[in-house]
Amino acid sequence: MARVKLTVNGSEVSREVEDRTLLVQFLRDHLGLTGTHVGCDTSQCGACVVHLDGHAAKSCTILAVQAAGASVTTIEGLADGDRLHPVQAAFREHHGLQCGFCTPGMIMTAVDMINRHAGRLDEKTVRHELEGNICRCTGYQNIVKSVLAAADEMRPGLSLSGLQAAE
């Protein structure tokens, strides 16, 4: 067992867990943050993507103890109260989902992607960057549309941290 302390969505958390606990299990089973999904368990589908110290990472492929001391953002940490994050709003507006299972990972990947490219994205880049996120319903069309719309929305007001991450 290990005492794991980390920052999740801005709050410090601490839990006693088995060393073999994956970060995604820690988030879902120990913190009750079930927005982060497990789709494949083989690091391929991207349903479990969270931000680890500001960068997209697959939470099924890192142990919670490895992440100790880090800052993690999950889908639950994006919205500002009732105000959706621009990427969440764009997925709703453009219907970038059907069953919704892959959506949290898609959105976390999209936020990271938009930050890294400073909001300057085209369709080809978005499709390429979605390499690590699998959707079985939509055929990706509306997901791509949502990401591009969110990028347009975010570009003028990109946060300083977003611009730094892009460098």
Partner: peptide
């Protein structure tokens, strides 16, 4: 290599 999230780690 891999995808963006894989390259993070």
């Amino acid at each position: 290599i891999g995808d963006a999230a894989v390259r993070t780690l």
